[in-house]
Design a protein around this nucleic acid. Sequence first.
DNA 1: GCTTAGCTACCTTCCAGTAGGTAGGCAGTC
DNA 2: GACTGCCTACCTACTGGAAGGTAGCTAAGC
Lengths: 194, 194
Amino acid sequence: MSTVSSTADDILACARTLIIAGGYNGFSYADIADVVGIRKPSVHHHFASKVDLVRTLVSRYREEAQAGLSALERNVADPADQLRNYVGYWEACIKDATAPFCVCALLASELPILPEEVALEVRAHFRFLASWLASVMERGKRQGRLHLASTARVEAEGFMATVHGAMLSARAYGDPKMFGTIIRPLLDRLSTRH
Amino acid sequence: MSTVSSTADDILACARTLIIAGGYNGFSYADIADVVGIRKPSVHHHFASKVDLVRTLVSRYREEAQAGLSALERNVADPADQLRNYVGYWEACIKDATAPFCVCALLASELPILPEEVALEVRAHFRFLASWLASVMERGKRQGRLHLASTARVEAEGFMATVHGAMLSARAYGDPKMFGTIIRPLLDRLSTRH
DNA sequence: GCTTAGCTACCTTCCAGTAGGTAGGCAGTC
DNA sequence: GACTGCCTACCTACTGGAAGGTAGCTAAGC
């Protein structure tokens, strides 16, 4: 029942990997067919068009992210630890190279040439992530566990931007450790009084 | 004598705009030919291959960046003002939408699928920019004009990452002001004692 | 007997790149 | 000053391959 069609999931997983490597125009249905082990038209059977595939993929990605952050809120009480956990997730992804970049961050860089349906999903992810970070910042401030230099909203936007920029630097240098090198001082600044 | 061939320059300028919009695979020789007003094979006359074109473009971009930062060092003495000036440059670019993204930052996001010759140039730009920022941080620290929370190198990498991430956020939100919103607190933290 | 999941064969369009030609400019030379 | 040779900057016409996508078939399963 949950394994109705593993092929569609395989296609989505494969497309995600390919998008993370080179963006929307960096892969084709032929690439996916090769990896998944079916013929090109069979990919169309699962996802009628490329826009359809990528929109579904990003939508699914957003659901996972929202579920993941909800779980984080349930399992970790301290706002500072929540931030550390969030960062740790990406640190691990970048280290083991399974998915060393946020799908939405990569697609956002090509926003001007993205099909509108995909662009909408990407923008929605940015708004959601920034809102979640702002709520963590706000709570951390109220509880005296995070020391903000500006408003929760601005601090959240700065945090998100730095995380995305750190992913980019890690990729540019070909050095997974660069992500942590950049983010750790940021966490320290937020969680220690000065 | 300096206007030997403005067509080659037109092609480079056009390609730069197109890359900023959608990356390496987001444009074609046909797109360039349309904008510049010549036929597609005539583009090949100036740049034998697409790799050739983009490598030249990035190489030229790096030269301009290095010249620009050299001029900044000559004209502005205070390290904090140098950072403000650098940020102000991008703020203006994003605001008037002429080139609202760093060519190398965009290409870096697609590094895994970039032709090696282009990838080399992109990585070199990251190293150069980070080195320049580190030297500014170092000097600012010595002169007591910048207050670093960690080493000059780490502070420089964090600064660069935040600038790149802020470009991405401005694009994702479709809001040029977002860049300044994110970067201003960063400049404040570096230039005021706390 | 309808649905699902795959297939082969094919279409149109676009892609980077090539072949080969033309028109004009600028030497040098008789 | 006309002729020759070469160069630059384009052009038309084309190639091979890859792109996204379609038509219509088969085989299996409930």
